[in-house]
Structures are given as structure tokens and as C-alpha cells.
């Protein structure tokens, strides 16, 4: 499985950059799903030993089910029921977002260069891939107007963190990762509910409208 790690990481980075540059909501959600799927695969690929242990399989399955299937479905349904317009509506243009993604990549590489542990052989691209996802998600949170895109950004961020934590599975207990996953699941659902509320109250999910609370 280890052979797949490198291409997977490259793919993840590409998906990330894609997330930052797509213009259609549907694609945005789809790419988030793809990211989730790649994450599930990455967990399998990163598992130590020739054949992954059963608990890694379970976790990968759970990740695939939740991140690759449940979230995109849920988000798409939300999009449909809210009759959203198809565009992402950025604060910061796509080109700039992409640049920000590249900057995130560079910062991740720098971070990776500062953080090295003797004896710990992480896949060479793990660090940039995870942190690009993380910072890319944050960039989405910052640069997109729609509440739903912010949820996607949050998901991308979480995916990055999850990816970063994947190698620790080799030594750790799975139940903790499952609990984290569950928490994120609930979080996304709560956010989804609130997005519905926002739409009903404001007739829009443009968070740019959210500026009545300030000093």
C-alpha cells in the first residue's frame, strides 16, 4: 500500500488547490467529497505493515462513509432545498485564493523543514499535503461569502488535520479518532441546521449580511 502514498499526497494537494479555484458550488462540494475519499485511502496507505490491521480498516471505512459520502450528500441536499445559486461567490478572487493556497503550501514546506524528528519517517509529502489542506480550508473560511462554503472550508480544514494525524494510528487507539470523527459529524450537522435557519431568517446564506453585531 505504501507505494500509493506519494501519488495520494500529490492528489490531495491538487484537490486542495482545486477547492480554492472552483467557481461552482456543486464542484466545490464534490471536491470536498473527493478529498474525503482520498483521506480514507491515505489512512489505509499510511498504515504500518504490509497489510493494514482491522481497526485501520474500520476507521478508513468510517472516514469514507462520513467524509466521502455523508457530507457531500448532506451538503448537496442542503444546497438543493435552499435553492442556492450555483456560484461560490468569493470575497477574494479565485486567482488570489489560488495564490493563497500556494502560499499555504510554501508555509507548510517551511514548517515541515523546521519540524523533523530523528527516527520518525513520515511520508515526505504528508506535511505539505496536510497543512495545505488545513490552510486551504482556512482560506476558504476567510474568502467565501456563503455560509455553506464556510462549512466546506471547515471540512477541508478538518481533513487536513485528520490526514496529519493519520500516521499516529500506527501507535494509537482508534476509538479516539472515531470520537473525533463523530464530533465533526455532529458539528457539520449542527452547522447544516443553522445554515437552514439562516436561510429562513435572512432569505440568503450570505454571511456578509452578518454584521449587525459589532462595536
Amino acid at each position: 500500500m505504501h507505494a500509493f502514498v506519494e501519488p495520494l499526497m500529490v492528489l490531495l494537494v491538487l484537490v486542495n488547490l482545486g477547492l480554492l479555484s472552483v467557481r461552482r458550488m456543486a464542484w466545490c462540494i464534490r471536491l470536498a467529497g473527493v478529498q474525503g475519499a482520498l483521506l480514507g485511502l491515505a489512512i489505509l496507505a499510511l498504515a504500518p505493515g504490509a497489510e493494514p490491521e482491522p481497526h485501520v480498516w474500520y476507521l478508513a471505512a468510517a472516514v469514507l462513509a462520513i467524509k466521502a459520502l455523508a457530507f457531500p450528500m448532506f451538503l448537496r441536499r442542503t444546497m438543493r432545498t435552499l435553492h442556492l445559486r450555483a456560484w461560490v461567490e468569493p470575497y477574494i478572487g479565485y486567482g488570489l485564493s489560488l495564490l493563497a493556497g500556494l502560499a499555504a503550501l510554501l508555509f507548510s514546506l517551511w514548517l515541515g523543514s523546521r519540524l523533523a524528528i530523528p527516527g520518525l519517517h513520515l511520508p515526505p509529502l504528508l506535511f505539505p499535503a496536510a497543512f495545505t489542506a488545513f490552510f486551504g480550508g482556512l482560506t476558504m473560511l476567510v474568502s467565501r461569502k456563503k455560509a455553506l462554503t464556510q462549512v466546506v472550508g471547515f471540512l477541508a480544514m478538518e481533513n487536513g488535520i485528520f490526514l496529519f494525524g493519520a500516521p499516529t494510528l500506527a501507535w494509537g487507539s482508534t476509538w479516539m479518532e472515531l470520537a473525533v470523527l463523530l464530533d465533526v459529524l455532529v458539528a457539520v450537522f449542527v452547522m447544516g441546521i443553522v445554515v437552514h435557519r439562516i436561510d429562513r431568517t435572512f432569505d440568503s446564506i450570505d454571511v456578509g449580511l452578518f454584521c449587525s453585531l459589532r462595536d
Binding site: Y91, F135, L138, L141, Q150, V207
Partner: peptide, 27 residues
């Protein structure tokens, strides 16, 4: 008081800025 302008993206940005600044200082 303009710091508390009410816009979420900028709030998240301030968190990001704090993180990057601290990480840069730390590392």
C-alpha cells in the same frame, strides 16, 4: 472598536494571523 467589525471571515483571519505569528515566533 473597528476591530470588532462583525465580519466572520476577518475574525477567522485574525485567528489565522495569530497562529501564523505565534508559529513563526516559536519555530
Amino acid at each position: 472598536k473597528w476591530l470588532q467589525h462583525g465580519r466572520i471571515p476577518l475574525y477567522v483571519l485574525s485567528i489565522l494571523a495569530a497562529l501564523v505569528a505565534v508559529l513563526a515566533w516559536v519555530l
